[in-house]
Design a protein around this nucleic acid. Structure first.
Length: 862
RNA sequence: GCGGGAGUGGCGGAAUGGUAGACGCUCCGGACUUAGGAUCCGGUGGGGUAAAUCCCCGUGAGGGUUCAAGUCCCUCCUCCCGCACCA
């Protein structure tokens, strides 16, 4: 016995697949296509188990679909721009480009070792100018269409490093490098008008229902945050201007007792300036800005002050005081609100604090509200009171009526507002795609000429020790000429948010070498992605941006689709048990003794076994894919990952579990080897095996049942765990059968051949290397990776007998083998003969008999 | 607070309203061995009984629908995730 030498087998087949370009695909409209895509990785240095899981799931799907006759596009690339490359440059003095590309080289070899069936000829990295030049082109076209614009935005600023910080570089409100308090600073930046697409992004979620996880759809819906209401104008005589507020409760208009403006509101500024308390306002604004970050952790007290100004109520003409308040966001609605303390909890709290009146205008059906006794706002619908001509209306009805009147008087209008904000894409970073615009003193903002693209990121830049982008100081880059007038001009030195690159990469995979962005023939054939797979952490941003880009590219004439990803699978995390020592905190499994005490520094403390958590270095529970592949081989790693839990649930890594997977593959291998001599000499035709009997028939039936189950679980449900369980169950059955089966009989030899062929075919999407190897040893000259999925005979699946479960009053009391196709009457008389059942029926009246064909009979007795 | 998901053996997990616990792990016993942390075989939800092919209990808790409920409905509990001053 040679034994299962996985490393030789895996190396051999990976080489063959690569040399023969087995997974290379071409556009072929005569064949049905299937595009399976996994979220491409950031080249951080090494593949982690999360990647392995993601890509294993994708690869099984790709291989199954290929076996089912689809022309399968299964590409891989690199989301290669981003901050960690700059951090590595700071820490180790390696240039971000060098760091990134060497990481890619290493990670590619890791992926290849896992035997994933990618069309590697389509690989690209988003930091390649050949990729990002199209992104720059899209941006220029968006600019021309008004989909990109500049506005002021708040950024994190470190005074001591003189640099903008990304959110992840802010730790506890302090700079991650120097520890200085981070302040916010206004800067100009580029924005993409995703809000123009808010309605379509929302309504198209409908098309994804049933194909995307419900959870993701809900998260996106909440993120877009559509709300319907009205904009209402309040005239401010002091400055002779209207203040427009947005409200979803126009029915409470008669309950307004004050108005509140965001401290950032231009009218707040104007009033403060006029009334001479500008400084107070600016102080307050700064305070609120700082608090904004605190709010994320806990509750912030309602604060604000009177603006010494009044506005006129559109209907009652009363004077309503104006306040500025910390809870009013400038970014949402109009940045100003009408406040109805009786019917809005926030307004209520503010009114209580500042002694403002509470006026009840909505009455609940079952009780009266007394403003003096109210402890919280009444926010539910009800009947309108104290509302002039609207009194007595149902509040929902009142909403419409009040809007109608406002519109008639030109004092307001129906309005839909979204929580979704425009997408700020400017990053003051070096390692990103340059934004292709030029600032000219004479011509203003001028896009780079399309023929000059790409605006290449200069690779010879020196990384600044404080982490600032070197681009603004890099004369060769920043100093340029205006494309319009030819005069001296300055180039934009900000780069794009890296989410921009990942918003359209899936489309580029259809034609990665095409000289233009997209070859219509290719994108029309391959898109949309049929199955997209990735982590739930991208439920909102990445997926929303990619959907947005798809619609923009459609409107720019590049693509002809509305949604990029037809089906979405969000896989769970890979988690593992953690160990904690009271003295040493998180410790490695090797540091725990067999008695469960800490071995670190001879500590001896009792180790606390923690619940399984997401693998992380800090918790010492990381399992390295390389180590596992080396120890067990890629097929075992893939098998364990696919078997341990269904894709959408978390997967608990288990050292014992992977042993079990390994053991199973060894069993398959050894059993094959044991019968290899017979197997390679025999061939079979399906019709030769039609008339089996006894154990042979049972085995063949079990085989075909297994094939069908694997088909259902692998292709239809993506429940690889149960499909693999079926294969294991069959293996157990096969080993038992072989004890009884006479392998000197020619027919049984033929059956054994069928068994192994189909078994290997079923297992091959999960464990391609071992199956490829044994397939070859069956004498096959074609690759199992290119074989068709095995067929099963539906007629064969039916057993001649089945276990009839016998229930009395719904309780299982006995079971009996019964011929298939037995009728209710036959079953009843059969069952009545059973001694145990007779006991239960004795002296009782049969009141009802329920018969489920091929399953059970339930006798209801009194 | 709002929204979503989940609670099944010692563990991961199976079960179109029809035998709860497939498959795997762990553990126990046995075989083969100089050896076993290799391999193979058997057992493994709880309780009762000397034992069983016997009986009872059992899918977070409590009700309900049904001949029949892990599955459907209602109430509650626990955990996880997302959102959270969005007017």
């Amino acid at each position: 016995m040679k034994g299962y030498d996985f490393s030789a087998i895996e190396e051999k087949w990976q080489k063959i697949w690569e040399e023969r370009k087995v997974f290379k695909v071409k556009t072929d409209p005569t064949k049905p296509k299937y595009y399976v895509l996994e979220m491409f990785p950031y080249p951080s240095g090494r593949i982690h188990m999360g990647h392995v899981r993601n890509y294993t799931l994708g690869d099984i799907i790709a291989r199954v679909k290929r076996m089912k006759g689809y022309n399968v596009l299964h590409p891989m690339g690199w989301d290669a721009f981003g901050l960690p490359a700059e951090n590595a440059a700071l820490k180790h003095g390696i240039h971000p480009a060098k760091w990134t590309y060497s990481n890619i080289d290493y990670m590619r070899t890791q992926l290849k070792k896992l035997g994933f069936s990618y069309d590697w000829d389509r690989e690209f990295a988003t930091c390649d100018p050949d990729y990002y030049k199209f992104e720059q082109k899209f941006f220029i076209e968006m600019l021309e269409k008004g989909l990109a614009y500049r506005k002021k935005t708040l950024v994190n600023w470190c005074e001591s490093c003189q640099t903008v910080l990304a959110n992840e570089q802010v730790e506890d409100g302090k700079c991650w490098r120097c520890g200085e308090e981070v302040t916010s600073r206004e800067m100009e930046g580029w924005f993409l008008k995703i809000t123009d697409y808010a309605e379509e992004l929302l309504s198209d979620l409908e098309k994804l229902k049933g194909h995307w996880p419900e959870k993701v759809l809900i998260m996106q819906k909440n993120w877009i945050g559509k709300s319907e209401g009205a904009e209402i104008d309040f005239y401010i005589p002091d400055i002779d201007k209207n203040l427009t507020v947005f409200t979803t409760r126009p029915d409470t208009l008669f309950g307004v007792t004050f108005l509140a403006l965001s401290p950032e509101h231009p009218l707040a500024y104007e009033i403060a300036e006029k009334k001479g308390f500008l400084e107070k306002l600016l102080e307050f604004r700064e305070k609120v800005r700082k608090e904004r970050k605190k709010i994320e952790e806990g509750e912030a007290e309602k604060e604000g002050f009177f603006l010494e100004t009044y506005a006129i109520h559109p209907f009652t003409k009363e004077e309503i005081p104006l306040y500025t308040a910390n809870f009013v966001l400038m970014e949402y609605g109009t940045g100003a609100i009408m406040c109805v303390p009786a019917h809005d909890q926030r307004d209520f709290e503010f009114a209580k604090k500042f002694g403002l009146p509470i006026r009840v205008v909505i009455k609940p059906k079952d009780r009266e509200l007394n403003p003096d006794e109210m402890e919280e706002a009444y926010e539910a619908p009800g009947v309108m009171i104290n509302s002039g001509e609207f009194t007595g209306l149902d509040s929902d009805e009142g909403k419409k009526k009040i809007i109608e009147k406002l519109e008639a008087l030109n004092l307001g209008k129906r309005k839909i507002t979204y929580r979704l904000r425009d997408w700020g894409v400017s990053r003051q970073r070096y390692w990103g795609c340059p934004i292709p615009v030029i600032y000219c003193d004479k011509c203003g903002i001028v896009p780079e000429k399309v023929e000059n693209l790409p605006v290449k990121l200069p690779l010879d830049a020196q990384i600044d020790p404080k982490g600032r982008s070197p681009l603004p100081e890099l004369k060769e880059f920043a100093e340029t000429t205006c494309p319009k007038c030819g005069g001296k001009a300055r180039r934009e030195t900000d780069t794009f948010d890296t989410f921009v690159e990942s918003s359209w990469y899936f489309a580029r995979f259809a034609c990665p070498d095409y000289p233009e962005a997209f070859n219509p023939e290719d994108v029309e054939y391959w898109l949309p992605v049929d199955q997209y797979i990735g982590g739930i952490e991208h439920a909102i941003l990445h997926l929303l941006y990619a959907r947005f880009f798809t619609k923009v590219l459609r409107d720019l004439g590049y693509l002809k689709l509305d949604e990029p990803f037809t089906n979405l699978l969000t896989q769970g995390m890979v988690i593992k048990e953690t160990y904690r020592c009271p003295r040493h905190s998180w410790i490695y499994p090797e540091e725990v003794s067999s008695e469960g005490t800490c071995l670190k520094d001879n500590c001896g403390e009792k180790v606390i076994i923690g619940k399984p958590e997401k693998m992380s270095k800090s918790k010492c529970n990381v399992v390295d894919p390389d180590t596992m592949i080396k120890k067990y081989g890629a097929d075992t790693v893939r098998l364990f990952i696919a078997f341990a839990s269904p894709p959408e649930k978390d997967l608990e890594w288990s050292d014992h579990g992977i042993e079990g997977a390994y053991r199973f593959l060894k069993r398959v291998y050894n059993l094959f080897e044991e019968h290899e001599e017979i197997l390679k000499k025999v061939t079979y035709k399906e019709e030769e095996l039609k008339n089996l009997s006894g154990q042979a028939l049972k085995l063949r039936r079990k085989l075909h049942q297994m094939v069908k189950k694997v088909h259902q679980d692998f292709e239809e449900r993506f429940h690889f765990n149960t499909g693999i369980a079926a294969i294991m169950e069959f293996m157990n059955y096969l080993q038992d059968s072989l004890k009884e089966l006479d392998l000197k009989e020619e027919l049984n030899k033929k059956l054994l051949r069928e068994v192994f062929e189909k078994l290997l075919l079923c297992l091959s999407p999960v464990c391609p290397h071992i199956c490829e190897e044994l397939w070859e040893r069956l004498g096959k000259e074609t690759l199992i990776s290119e074989a068709a999925f095995p067929t099963w005979e539906e007629d064969l699946l039916k057993e001649e007998t089945f276990t009839l479960v016998v229930q009395i009053n719904g309780k299982v009391r006995d079971q009996v083998e019964a011929p298939s196709g037995i009728t209710k009457e036959e079953a009843l008389s059969l069952v009545k003969e059973l001694p145990k059942i007779q006991k239960y029926l004795e002296g009782k009246n049969i009141r009802n008999v329920i018969f489920v064909p091929e399953k059970l009979i339930n006798i209801v007795v009194s």
